[in-house]
Computed example of a mutant assay.
Amino acid sequence: MSHDQNFKNLILDYPRAALEFFASEEAAAIPPAARITPVRQEQLKERLGDRFRELDTPLLVEFSREKKQAILFILEEETDTRYFSIHRLIHYCVDVADLLNITRVAPVVVFLRPGRHPLSLELGTEHNIYLAFRFIACDLGEIPAIEYVASRNIVARVNLPNMRHDPEQRVEIYLRAQEGLAELEPDPNKRLKYIDFIAQYANLNESEQ
C-alpha cells in the first residue's frame, strides 16, 4: 500500500486524533461534541473532475448546526518534499471551498521525509499583496520521537518510527509505538492493521527484530 493510502486510512480511522497531532494549533479549539466527517469523495470527483486528487483527505468539523461555525481541514500527505506544490494545494483548497461554500479552511500538509519546502506564497506587486496563502506543515522527520513515546494520541504513537530519533533507538521506538497501539486501540482488527503500519515505517532489519 502507498504512503498516501496509509495516511489516508490513518486519518479516516482516527480523525480527531489526526487533527490534534497534525494540526494542533487549530484543533485545540475543537470542542469535544464537535462532529468530524470526511467529505464524500464521489461528490468531489464529480464536481472537480481532473483537478480532484483522490488521496487528499478533507474533513469537515462542525461545531454546531450553524454552518458558519464549521471548519474544513484539508489534509495532504507528501512523502518527498521535492514533489510538493503549494500552487496545487492552493487550487485544491479554493476548489473545495467553492464547492462546499465555506471560507473557514485549514490546509494541512504532513511531510513524511525531511526536506526543504515553502511555507507560504504571496502574489502581488511592489505596491500590494493580492493573494497570501500559508498552510500548517507537520514535518514528521523533524519532530523528536522522545516527546511522544508516552503520548495518549494514537496517531502520534503509531508515527513514532517516522519521527526523529537516533539509529540506536530504532528498536525502542518501535516497541513504544506497538505498546501505544495495544493500549489505545481496543478493536483487534484495527490493532492488526496498524501493527503493520508501524512495522512498515520502523523497517527493522533481521538482527533488530
Rank of each mutant, 00 (worst) to 15 (best):
E122N: 14
V108I: 14
V96L: 06
L100P: 13
L131Q: 11
Y130I: 13
D95S: 05
A145D: 01
R82N: 10
L112W: 03
I143G: 10
L112Q: 08
F135R: 00
L119H: 14
D95C: 09
T125N: 06
A106T: 15
I146L: 03
Y130N: 11
V110Q: 06
R134T: 15
D139C: 00
P107M: 01
S120Q: 08
Y92D: 04
L99G: 04
Y92T: 04
R116C: 01
L123D: 05
V94T: 15
A106G: 14
E142G: 01
R88M: 04
G115Q: 05
L121H: 03
D95N: 09
Y130D: 14
V110W: 11
N101E: 13
H117A: 05
F111H: 04
E142P: 00
V94I: 15
Y83F: 12
S85W: 08
A97K: 01
N128E: 12
S120E: 08
I136E: 05
C93R: 07
A97I: 00
L119Y: 11
Y130R: 13
F133T: 06
S120K: 02
H91Q: 15
N128V: 15
I146D: 11
I136S: 13
I102F: 04
N128A: 14
P107R: 04
V110D: 07
E142L: 11
G141H: 03
A106F: 06
I143S: 07
R113D: 04
H127F: 06
L89N: 00
L121W: 02
S85V: 01
R116Q: 14
N128L: 12
R82I: 01
V109G: 00
N101H: 13
L131T: 06
G115W: 03
A106R: 08
